[in-house]
Computed example of a mutant assay.
Amino acid sequence: MEHLDHVPARRGTVIFLNGTSSSGKSSIAGELLRILDEPYFHMPVDAFHAMRSRTPVPQDQLATVLHRTWQGFHRAVAGMAAAGNNVVVDHVLSAEWRLKDCLSLFVPQDVVLVKVHCDPAELERRERARGDRPAGLAGAQLEQVHAHGVYDLECDTGEATPQECAHRIKDFLGARVGPTAFEQLRATIGRRSL
């Protein structure tokens, strides 16, 4: 393998899958990695939570630890993209500060924001089938996750398979025009707090 002293600078594309727990984000991400023409990294927030040691966290410190984990995750994604890597982000924007943090860190022209959703009854069924999430978690996240309302693309995983959703996203990548959802959001909610 050839050693490179200089790698040409570029910015990576961020495919940002936002949806509740059990909405189908990871399944779509897996298909995207299989079909996209360039290398992409799948960076799910769950992987960052899984990296934390199993040392018990006192209840009064848990919110702080989780907040720092999310902040670190956002910065890791932004760093990968800034280094020229393409990234598929698997995220849950269930708190407004998370979106604002991402808006302040990511290059908005490089982000494709995808709404991943399905019928609430289907979310509940998937949650029960998984058995690894607290009952009602997805339902509790529903109101805030999509509250910002602006997306580049939408995938209803109750109506389309992960493969179909991934192909829609791939097709969209080749036909993108601005302003992106992140550009629009930065011009409205992002500017108020950035």
Results as ranks from 00 to 15, higher is better:
Glu96Lys: 15
Val116Lys: 12
Leu103Phe: 05
Phe106Gly: 01
Lys100Trp: 08
Ser104Ala: 12
Met80Arg: 13
His117Trp: 14
Val65Ile: 06
Leu93Ser: 09
Phe106Ile: 00
Pro108Asp: 07
Leu99Phe: 07
Leu99Thr: 01
Asp110Gly: 04
Val87Asp: 00
Asp60Phe: 07
Lys115Ser: 06
His67Gly: 02
Thr69His: 10
Trp97Lys: 11
Val107Leu: 09
Asp60Ala: 02
Ala81Cys: 09
Val77Arg: 08
Ser104Pro: 01
His117Gln: 08
Val112Lys: 00
Val111His: 04
Leu66Phe: 04
Gln71Met: 15
His74Asp: 05
Pro108Phe: 07
Val107Asp: 09
Asn86Ser: 03
Ala78Pro: 10
Lys100Asp: 13
Ala83Glu: 11
His91Leu: 06
Gly84Ser: 02
Ala63Ser: 05
Arg68Val: 05
Val65Leu: 14
Thr69Gln: 11
Ala83Asn: 05
Asp60Lys: 07
Thr64Tyr: 09
Asn86Phe: 01
Glu96Tyr: 10
Ser94Asp: 10
Gly72Leu: 11
Leu113Gln: 02
Asp119Pro: 10
Leu93Thr: 04
Trp97Ala: 13
Thr69Ser: 08
Phe106Glu: 00
Thr64Lys: 13
Cys102Leu: 11
Val111Pro: 05
Ser94Val: 01
Val87Glu: 06
Arg75Thr: 12
Leu113Ile: 12
Glu96Ile: 11
Val65Asp: 05
Trp70Arg: 15
Arg98Cys: 01
Gly84Cys: 02
Val107Lys: 12
Leu66Pro: 05
Val92Glu: 04
Met80Cys: 12
Gly72Cys: 13
Arg98Trp: 08
Cys102Gln: 05
Gln61Trp: 04
Leu93Phe: 14
Cys118Gln: 10
Asp119Ser: 04
Met80Gln: 10
Ala81Ile: 11
Asn85Ser: 02
Pro108Leu: 06
Ala78Tyr: 09
Asn86Val: 03
Asp101Gln: 04
Arg68Phe: 14
Lys100Thr: 13
Arg68Leu: 14
Leu103Asn: 06
Gln61Gly: 00
Asp101Asn: 04
Met80Phe: 15
Leu99Pro: 06
Val65His: 06
Gln61Tyr: 06
Arg75Val: 11
Trp97Leu: 06
Val65Cys: 02
Ala76Leu: 15
Trp70Cys: 04
Asp110Pro: 02
Trp70Tyr: 14
Gln109Trp: 00
Val114Ala: 03
Val112Met: 13
His91Gly: 00
Val116Pro: 02
Thr64Val: 12
Gly79Asn: 12
Val89His: 01
Thr64Gly: 02
Asn86Arg: 03
Gln61Ser: 03
Asp101Cys: 01
Trp70Met: 03
Arg68His: 12
Ser94Ile: 05
Cys102Lys: 04
Val116Gln: 03
Val87Gly: 01
Leu103Gln: 09
Ser104Cys: 02
Gly72Tyr: 13
His117Cys: 09
Leu113Val: 05
Val88Phe: 08
Leu66Arg: 15
Val116Met: 03
Asp110Arg: 15
Ser94Pro: 00
Val92His: 01
Arg68Asn: 13
Val112His: 01
Gly79Gln: 03
Lys100Gln: 15
Gly79Ser: 14
Val88Cys: 06
Val77Trp: 04
Leu66Tyr: 08
Val87Ser: 08
Arg75Leu: 15
Val87Phe: 08
